[in-house]
Design a binder for these strands. Structure first.
Lengths: 158, 158
DNA sequence: AACGGTATGCAAATAAGTTGCATACGCCCG
DNA sequence: CGGGCGTATGCAACTTATTTGCATACCGTT
């Protein structure tokens, strides 16, 4: 879960040296309150339900929050997804990306244990992040597919 | 390394039930002959140096090759990268993506050991792929940056 | 040689993100 | 309190990466 009851978003912003604005708080709340990372489109749509906002502003806020380490940016399909960055309250964890519905979910940190030491010792460049992403089809989509399959079979039994 | 001397691309295609065309062979050779995954733009440009080809054809060939399991599709930055899919000759391995130059490199399979069993046992959906991606800045870019830094310092010493 | 299916090309559409510039807002200075 | 400055936001246009629709070309079979 990306969700965080322990984070004071207002404080996170000021502590990062960012001005506290209604939009930024809203974005942080939305990302932090969701069970998994969201893409810009989803965040934009969610903010919009309450307050009008420009799409570009959302991108810029997301960039700022990533730059200052409040959010992490994950790639999924051909968009970026944003979740709370790992901090004292959240361990880094792998994600599951459903290629069918495009939803991204967080996996428990123990789901995949990985040992970074061997790489960190020999890699010549600068390592900023290590992401584990599991791709596949989520349970909901699996059920939808198999239901649809049965329906089609009943209707068109080849 | 994605590179593979042991693969007979012609045979890989027929074995996958795909027609063998000059373009497809070319794409396979380019991807298989490179030291790391390439994006569609790079593959397109490389094919073009020898033979004219349409950009869309490249996308379609890449899709077909991924569909049939000859290539794997990785996300890096905001494009997809393509490398030979793991098979008898290539173990699955993690990748390094340089956020500065956009190059993707293969890491040795042992670089990051990960145990999938715990996840596979409890995950309710269908797992198709597990990708480990290390993001950061590669050695070449690090050197370039530090050189530029020194040059700027010399020129503009604040 | 005709036929049917797949592959390729071309143009246009879409999706996601970025840039440039103008306006608006919050905060500090005098 | 008013002006000035710096950041935040909005808007329009642009770029990049990929996809779709449709027409043509090629290939193996009959």
């Amino acid at each position: 879960m990306t969700m965080c009851q322990n984070c004071d978003y207002h404080q996170l912003l000021t502590h990062a040296g960012l001005e506290v604005t209604a939009h930024r708080l809203r974005v942080l709340e939305i990302v932090g309150g969701n069970t998994g990372p969201l893409n810009a489109q989803e965040i934009f749509a969610t903010v919009c339900r309450a307050t009008p906002i420009n799409r570009v502003t959302v991108y810029r806020i997301l960039d700022a929050l990533v730059q200052h380490g409040l959010l992490e940016r994950l790639s999924g399909g051909r968009a970026f997804y944003y979740g709370l960055a790992p901090n004292e309250h959240h361990q880094r964890h792998p994600h599951f990306f459903c290629r069918r519905c495009g939803r991204m979910d967080c996996l428990r940190p123990e789901a995949i244990a990985l040992d970074l030491q061997p790489l960190a010792r020999v890699f010549p460049g600068h390592i900023e992040n290590v992401a584990v992403r599991v791709d596949g089809v989520c349970k909901l989509c699996m059920d939808a597919v198999s239901k649809r399959g049965r329906a089609q079979q009943a209707h068109n039994p080849n």
